[in-house]
Amino acid sequence: MIRFEKVTKTYAGQARAALDQINVDIEKGEFVFLVGTSGSGKSTFLRLVLREYRPTSGRVYVAGKEINRLAGWKVPGLRRQIGTVFQDFRLLPNKTVSENVAFALQVIGRSRSYIDKAVPETLDLVGLDGKGDRMPDELSGGEQQRVAIARAYVNRPMILIADEPTGNLDPTTSVGIMKLLDRINRAGTTVLMATHDAGIVDQMRKRVVELEDGVVVRDQTRGGYGLEQ
């Protein structure tokens, strides 16, 4: 589903590579944690998957497409197969919960009937049934992150990317979010999650890819946050 072949990414004006000759292969339906300190290359990894950047060298394949060769006008098509969740939720404050989720479908031209069916279904799935008319600022942090997950998942993407989704949440709320991501993964969506949250990684026992200074230093199935787990 996602494959990095000898991928190097060097930003303009920087001597050191953000990613240096890395090889990673993520199969369809996997749940992968991407761990590492700040500046280790996690964000660059995710941005390459989203084709926000192109690699300096090497090849990146996402959902069967080589992103280096993907024409600019085909990028939106790729992104429709990827859902993205961030630490800071990125909800539109002037839209209700339902409108925030529907927005993701409206802007890619989905029909009204599809939207009317998919939005309540997805809100129900993420545990926000009955809260569609609330404004984002009326919700707790955990609930806001659920809205963000609903928006990322409402188009049923093949891949869900989560960049520190529990970074702003307390441990109890984080567990709820992880259960939700796990459910989405079990339904067939590949989940790639960058995190600093050792507790969650240790608890979930999923595959762990650890980056350090742009290099993969560990790729462990059913791993923990630390090395000796």
């Binding site: 989203l50 600019g72 006008w73 990028v75 939106p76 098509g77 790729l78 992104r79 429709r80 197969q81 993205t84 990125r90 539109l92 927005f103 993701a104 802007v107 890619i108 031209g109 928006r151 188009n155």
Partner: peptide, 17 residues
């Protein structure tokens, strides 16, 4: 910028944006 950021992420076309 917030709307545009979300539109880009969810795959809205350049024309639509």
């Amino acid at each position: 910028r917030k709307e545009i950021g979300i539109m880009r992420l969810v795959g809205a076309s350049s024309l639509y944006i």
